[in-house]
Design a protein around this nucleic acid. Structure first.
Length: 816
RNA sequence: GGGCGGAUGGCGGAAUGGCAGACGCGACGGCCUUAGGAGCCGUUGGGGAAACCCGUGGAGGUUCAAGUCCUCUUCCGCCCACCA
């Protein structure tokens, strides 16, 4: 049998395209619905992860279209990036050609799936018409002081003479030549995302339709912490050593100070001291290692005494200054006051190096408070770990006896009054390093002039086009630096010879605003037409992988806020609702070429058609969960579609008189309308797996009693999932209109009312019997029926019930 | 170390605190067929002849009633990880 999916699918794709069924029209006569899936990196063919992501989106888009919304469902390609450059290095192909081929391959792969994209709005980020606006936005950021240059470490391969991305560093060595990678300071471009840290944090409150865990991840990434910066004096030098702490209540317990190895005060502290040589060797050893290595070494904390002392301003005590690798230069002030009694890292370090431990927060006595009690006494020598909880201030001068929570506030205020400290907020969020010493990206539109310094390329000279003749070898530094005709230019200010910036932008830049470009993809005057974004934005539903939960979403939120401040948008947040779909696994593992467990969507399409693939990938698991691919389970979806096909074909064979007229089987009518209600609700809440099972149930019911209305409803409800087949069936049922544009069916609530219900009879909470009773029976009536039931009487065994619980419309529980 | 999820038949997964296992895969039996890696029908959590009993990682608890709520615990996954 096997329905002719291949002909059907190409027929309807052609029809949709010819009729422009999915073209988005900005028309305020109906509600707009912007549905966006994260656009793909064009690495070759589409894979199951794409199929899943885009099928989830397509169901939502098609459903909204049938509900009469102005649906906006665009697609494009995130086309800059390293894989194209690696292909160039390995296979000697031009990245532009390679990328173009991949885009073509992917576009046709997506088309084979029958997704309802408005292809007229396609955007490809490596197109100069797109990336000129990257450059424009960058210039605006530079103008506002949000783009700046600073020294930053990169992974450097001394053999290839090039910088490496983190993922190109494998076991501390270069991915190509295995030479150990060394960190190296390079002047690079940053975006000042930290200027928006408070807004990015505060506005998370507005994202009420985002998954809670994504919000938590963003919150932790931004990492706001409130505390005080307190100034220790370096003994015998007059220098001030600022230290940040979130625990001012523990200041009296500081027994030493620790500097990060890179801290600028280290050199002065050790000079001429006996410790000098040893400390210097230690510092050099730490600095030479990359951050990954430092972290990978784990909990082993190493450090040395510098020979210097710092004076704690709260009690005038001189305490030793150490350097240790567990203090990071890039957080806080690069120095800490160590309170070993109340911080676990300090505790371990103090134990290791025999530094004093002083308790300043007395743990509450055991049993005093069920939540906060701590069995430890006030003598830390017996402790196995630090006490980080709340307690009572001790050894803390005039603050003794206060609860530590109050001590925290009072000590912070007091040190501030005394001029010893100031209250501050520190953020974990760092500025965003966007420079890449790479070819396949957007050139940063800046010019270095010996006389004028760093000068922006004037707006009317954009785009700065990526030259096509760069030598891409993977060696000898940035490819752009080797293209004379690109590098050599004149200063826009003084006209004298100058050099172009040869770094390109990280591709996260490109994807931080593409959702705005879709609104007016051919806009020539601005990155997007503010009228169009005012109509379409925000994205009503965004769908993509959890791996983008932090960076991509944070950057997009940052860009939106920046563009709003430029006056181009009237929008706080770009994505109203977010869904993160799970991964596609095979035998419990992520599909990957290296594991050799990749299932190619095209093979599946050839065997079963796109509709079966779509249906199966939605049926096998809820969208957010990971999905276990199963080659034989897809047969179930295939069978189901064939049976639906058969159902319609068999009905077509019948004369109208031979069909069961609508209404003659009230039970099937009821089931049909119940299915409309259920499937509709489940599509809206993205429970596609159960929506499909409801469709299977409806088909099973129809098979027993074929009825025109039921069949038509089934075809309509199935449409978002299996669009090609259902268009064909809809036509075969005699309809002229395209099903995708046919209004979604509505259920008749009157038909869902039932006259009888099944009453569950429990004895002591266990199901013992069931009873069919008329709807609307009162509590007493239900109780009487239950107690009269033979099964219940058997369990009562003549004894009177102790209690009878009646849940109307559902059950009666008799307690003996 | 921190955060967030999970754990239900042979498998994927269903279950507003109220019929555990919907729907599907697989398996088994049958029908049809020259044949079937097709199709159709039936059975399918475990135990038991049956009445019934036992079952949602483990241990407690709340409740008339717990897969679902609470406490503790084990294991697994993901993300972030020396953040002061």
């Amino acid at each position: 049998m096997a329905y002719p999916f291949s002909e059907i699918e190409s027929k309807w794709r052609k029809r949709w395209e010819e009729d422009g069924v999915f073209r988005a029209v900005a028309d305020s006569s109906a509600k707009k619905y912007y549905l966006l899936e994260m656009f793909p990196y064009p690495s070759g063919r589409i894979h199951m992860g794409h199929v899943r992501n885009y099928t989830i989106g397509d169901v939502a888009a098609r459903y909204r279209l049938a509900r009469g919304c102005r649906v906006f469902h665009p697609m494009g390609f995130d086309a800059f990036g390293q894989p194209a450059e690696n292909a160039a290095i390995k296979q000697k192909v031009d990245p532009a050609t390679w990328t173009g081929d991949c885009v073509g391959e992917m576009r046709s792969g997506l088309k084979r799936m029958g997704f309802s994209y408005d292809w007229d709005r396609e955007v490809v980020t490596c197109d100069p018409g797109y990336y000129r606006w990257n450059q424009w936005i960058f210039l605006k950021m530079f103008e506002k002081g949000l783009a700046y240059q600073a020294e930053a470490p990169v992974n450097w391969c001394p053999s290839c003479q090039t910088t490496l991305a983190n993922e190109e560093v494998i076991d501390g060595g270069c991915w190509r030549c295995k030479t150990p990678v060394a960190p190296r300071e390079l002047k690079q471009w940053f975006l000042k995302i930290t200027a928006y840290a408070d807004q990015l944090l505060a506005d998370l409150e507005k994202l009420t339709d985002w998954p809670e865990r994504i919000l938590t991840m963003q919150r932790n990434w931004i990492g706001r912490s409130e505390g005080v910066e307190i100034w220790f004096a370096v003994q015998g030098s007059g220098q001030r050593l600022p230290v940040f702490t979130t625990r001012p209540d523990t200041i009296f317990g500081a027994t030493y100070v620790v500097l990060a190895p890179e801290h600028p005060l280290v050199e002065g502290l050790i000079r001429g001291k006996p410790q000098e040589a040893q400390v210097r060797r230690f510092v050099e050893g730490v600095v030479r290692r990359t951050k990954q290595e430092r972290v990978a070494e784990g909990i082993q904390k190493e450090g040395l005494f510098t020979g210097g002392f710092a004076v704690n301003p709260v009690n005038g005590e001189a305490i030793p200054i150490w350097v240790a690798d567990y203090v990071l230069m890039e957080y806080g002030t690069g120095a800490i006051m160590a309170v070993p009694a109340h911080d676990q890292r300090d505790f371990l370090f103090a134990r290791e190096h025999r530094l004093p431990i002083r308790v300043v927060i007395q743990p509450p006595p055991a049993g005093s408070d069920p939540r906060g009690s701590d069995p430890r006494g006030s003598d830390p020598s017996g402790w196995s770990e630090a006490f980080e909880g709340e307690g009572t201030q001790v050894n803390s001068g005039q603050f003794n006896g206060l609860p530590s929570a109050e001590g925290k506030r009072r000590i912070a205020a007091w040190t501030e009054e005394q001029g010893m400290a100031k209250r501050t907020v520190h953020w974990r969020l760092r500025d965003w390093l966007i420079s890449r010493q790479r070819y396949w990206g957007t050139p940063i539109p800046m010019i270095h002039c010996p006389g004028c310094g760093v000068v922006p390329v004037p707006e009317d000279q954009l785009p700065v086009v990526l030259p096509s003749d760069a030598p891409i070898t993977g060696e000898g530094g940035s490819p752009l630096a080797k293209v004379k005709s690109f590098v050599e230019t004149s200063c826009p200010r003084c006209r004298k010879p100058a050099r172009r910036e040869t770094d390109t932008m990280a591709t996260f830049f490109d994807s931080s605003w593409y959702f705005l470009r879709f609104c007016s993809p051919r806009s020539q005057d601005l990155p997007f037409d503010p009228k169009e974004t005012a109509f379409w934005m925000p994205v009503d539903q965004y769908i993509g992988g959890i791996e983008h939960a932090i960076l991509h979403l944070l950057y997009s939120r940052f860009f939106t806020k920046f563009l709003r401040d430029l006056g181009l948008l009237k929008l706080e947040e770009p994505f109203a609702r977010l869904l993160t779909q799970g991964m596609v696994l095979k035998e419990g593992e992520v599909m990957s070429k290296s594991k050799g467990n990749v299932v190619d969507p095209d093979g599946v399409i050839q065997r079963y058609g796109a509709d079966t693939l779509r249906l199966f990938i939605l049926f096998a698991a809820p969208p957010e969960d990971s999905l276990e691919w199963n080659d034989s389970a897809i047969e179930g979806s295939w069978r189901f579609l064939n049976r639906v096909w058969e159902l319609v074909e068999s009905q077509r064979g019948q004369t109208p008189e031979g069909q069961t007229p609508s209404g003659s089987d009230p039970e099937l009518r009821r089931k049909t309308h119940a299915a409309i209600k259920r499937v509709t609700g489940e599509i809206e809440s993205f429970k596609f797996n159960t929506a499909i099972s409801a469709l299977m149930e409806l088909r099973n019911a129809i098979e027993k009693n074929n009825q025109r209305e039921a069949v038509e409803v089934l075809v309509q409800l199935l449409n978002p999932f299996a669009p090609h087949l259902t268009e064909e069936l809809w036509e075969r049922l005699g309809h002229r209109e395209i099903l995708a544009r046919t209004p979604w069916p509505r259920h008749d609530p009157a038909l869902l009312e039932e006259s009888e219900i099944t009453l569950l009879l429990q004895v002591n909470g266990k199901l013992r019997s069931r009873l069919t009773v008329p709807v609307g029976l009162g509590e007493e009536g239900l109780k009487a029926r239950a107690l009269a039931d033979p099964a219940v009487r058997k369990w009562l065994d003549g004894k009177p019930p102790r209690q009878v619980i009646v849940v109307r419309g559902r059950l009666v529980n008799v307690v003996v």
